[in-house]
């Protein structure tokens, strides 16, 4: 078990405690910042994948229908489920660590 911090909470909060914070605990502002930044990355990936499909289609390579088909392919289902479970385990490790 770690010992309690020997500095006051406002110092522990670090840079987010400087300037504006909307929530009583500035850590919540920082967490929201992480979520919004992740949102930006997710949107970029979604857009880029959409563009990739469009670019391939322009080159005569139609992949969109094939992607839909593969998503429901029963033969791929076990591998996809395993990938998903591994992803969730990594993603939620901080929550389930105890």
């Amino acid at each position: 078990m770690s010992s309690p911090p020997d500095h006051p909470p406002e110092a522990a909060a670090g840079p987010a405690a400087r300037g504006y914070h909307a929530f009583e605990d500035p850590v919540h502002d920082r967490l929201l910042g992480v979520i919004l930044a992740l949102g930006a990355e997710v949107w970029n990936l979604r857009e880029r994948l959409g563009l990739l499909e469009s670019a391939l289609a322009r080159q005569g390579v139609e992949v969109s229908a094939l992607i839909e088909e593969l998503a429901l392919d029963p033969e791929r289902a076990p591998a996809m489920a395993a990938d998903r479970d591994a992803f969730l385990a990594r993603f939620l490790r901080a929550v389930s660590a105890d």
């Binding site: 919540h28 929201l32 919004l36």
Partner: peptide
Amino acid sequence: LYRFAAATQHLAQKM
């Protein structure tokens, strides 16, 4: 909702 909207505005501005 106000806290969330205010924090989002502030963070989006910095971003």
